[in-house]
Design a protein around this nucleic acid. Structure first.
Lengths: 151, 151
DNA sequence: CTCCTTTGATTGACACGTCAATCATCCTCT
DNA sequence: AGAGGATGATTGACGTGTCAATCAAAGGAG
C-alpha cells in the first residue's frame, strides 16, 4: 500500500527553485536599472504610474492604495518619502476633511515620463525577447494556473 | 519603412505583469505560511537549511554567505537577529582570528526540523500540484531561458 | 621585520514593508 | 442632537535589505 506523495521530488524542487529565483532575479534587475537610469524605485514607479493615469494627476489616498494594490500604511510611508523628494504633494480633500489628495508635481510627472520608455524597453529585452512566442504563451498559462491556487 | 519595435505590446505587458506578480504572490504566500506555522521568515529558513547541512551544524560566516547567496553585510544583520532569538550562536574561529563561526543551537535545529515538512508540502501544493507535468517542464525551460539574459 | 594591501566581518544610515495603535471625521440610529 | 461605530489616514516599532565606512587580523613584497 502506497502513501500519497506529499513532498516534492528532487527534480521538482530544482524546477521550483529555478523558477522562483529567476523571477526574483528578474524583478531585482528591472528595479536596479530603473534606479540607475531614472533614480526611481519600483514603488516610486508604481505610484507615479497610477497618478499619471488619474484625472488631473491627483487621487485620493485610498484610491491610490487600491490602484497600486498596497496597504494604506505602506502607501503612507512611501508617500512621505516621495513628498520629501518633491515628486508629489499631499493636499487636504475638499469633500472629506479626513481625506487626503495626492497630487503629482511637475517634477514627479517629468520623472515618470523619463522612466517609462527605459523601463518598458528593459521589460522587452529581459522578458519578452528572452522567450520564444510559445514560451511567452506558456508563461501566461502557467501564471494563470498558479493564481488559481492563490485565491 | 518600419522601425524595429522596442516597446512591448499591450498583450506582452499583460503576460509580463501576470508572470511577475504571480511569482511574487507565490513567494509571499509561502513566506506567510512558514511564518504562521513555524515562526520562521524565509531568510531564517535559508540560513537554517545551510547550517543544517553543514559539518557539525557550523559554518564560517563567509561560507554561509556564499551558501545562501547573500552579501556579508546582510548576513551579519540577519545573524544578529537570529542570535537574539536563540536559533544560533557566533563563536570565534580557531584558525583565523578575524573569522567567526556560526553554530546551530538545539533550538535552531529543532525549529528547522519542524519547518521543513510543512514548507515542502506547501511548495508541492502551491506550485507542483498547480501545474500539469507539461507546464512544470515548461516552467523549468522558461526560467532557464530568462537566466541567459540575466548573466 | 615592516609596510601595505587584502580579507573577514561588523556597523550605521537609510529605504522599504508589516502590524498594531492612534486619531479625527463621518455617518447612522434613536 | 448625541452616542457610538465605521472610515481615512498617519504613526511608531520593528524586521528586512543595500551601500559605504570601519576595523582588526592575515599575508605578501621589500
Amino acid at each position: 500500500m502506497t502513501r500519497r506523495r506529499v513532498l516534492p521530488t528532487t527534480e521538482e524542487l530544482r524546477v521550483w527553485r529555478g523558477f522562483i529565483e529567476t523571477a526574483e532575479a528578474l524583478r531585482v534587475e528591472l528595479g536596479a536599472r530603473l534606479q540607475a537610469e531614472c533614480g526611481l524605485s519600483p514603488g516610486d514607479y508604481a505610484v507615479l504610474l497610477a497618478l499619471s493615469e488619474a484625472e488631473g494627476r491627483r487621487l485620493r489616498s485610498s484610491q491610490l492604495a487600491d490602484d497600486v494594490g498596497w496597504e494604506r500604511s505602506r502607501l503612507s510611508h512611501h508617500l512621505g518619502r516621495m513628498e520629501k523628494r518633491g515628486l508629489l504633494r499631499r493636499e487636504e480633500c475638499a469633500t472629506d476633511n479626513r481625506g487626503a489628495e495626492v497630487v503629482l508635481t511637475p517634477e514627479g510627472s517629468a520623472a515618470f515620463r523619463n522612466a517609462t520608455v527605459p523601463h518598458l524597453t528593459a521589460v522587452r529585452e529581459l522578458f519578452v525577447d528572452a522567450l520564444t512566442p510559445e514560451q511567452l504563451a506558456a508563461a501566461g498559462e502557467i501564471a494563470a494556473a498558479l493564481r488559481v491556487k492563490l485565491g
